[in-house]
């Protein structure tokens, strides 16, 4: 299908800039980490928005809450960037 276009927009969550949004596509994490991410609202299909980038962790908005995620963890979250 439109795999080519999709792939071009697929980035790791830590590659988004502040105020950029994406839809979670895949969690490339182990079982425990995947569960924790899901419980906190980061599931495939969820919309996430990067609010802030610190020295290491980032702050994202998802499901009406603000979550701080370490850089290593954010790099395991694949998102489809939403172009505005």
């Amino acid at each position: 299908m439109d795999a080519g276009v999709g792939l071009m927009n697929k980035v790791r969550l830590n590659e988004l800039k502040p105020h950029e949004e994406g839809v979670v596509v895949e969690l490339m994490a182990g079982k425990g980490l995947t569960r924790r991410l899901c419980e906190m609202g980061i599931v495939p299909g969820a919309r996430v928005k990067v609010l802030l980038i610190g020295h290491g962790p980032i702050v994202v908005e998802t499901m009406g809450s603000r979550i701080a995620i370490g850089k290593g963890m954010a790099s395991k979250i694949l998102v489809e960037k939403i172009r505005k």
Binding site: L33, R36, L37, M40, G56, P57, V59, S65, R66, I67, A68, I69, G70, G72, M73
Partner: peptide, 9 residues
């Protein structure tokens, strides 16, 4: 442990 924490209002 991986760092993930909710920031409450």
């Amino acid at each position: 442990s991986p760092f993930i924490i909710e920031l409450p209002p």
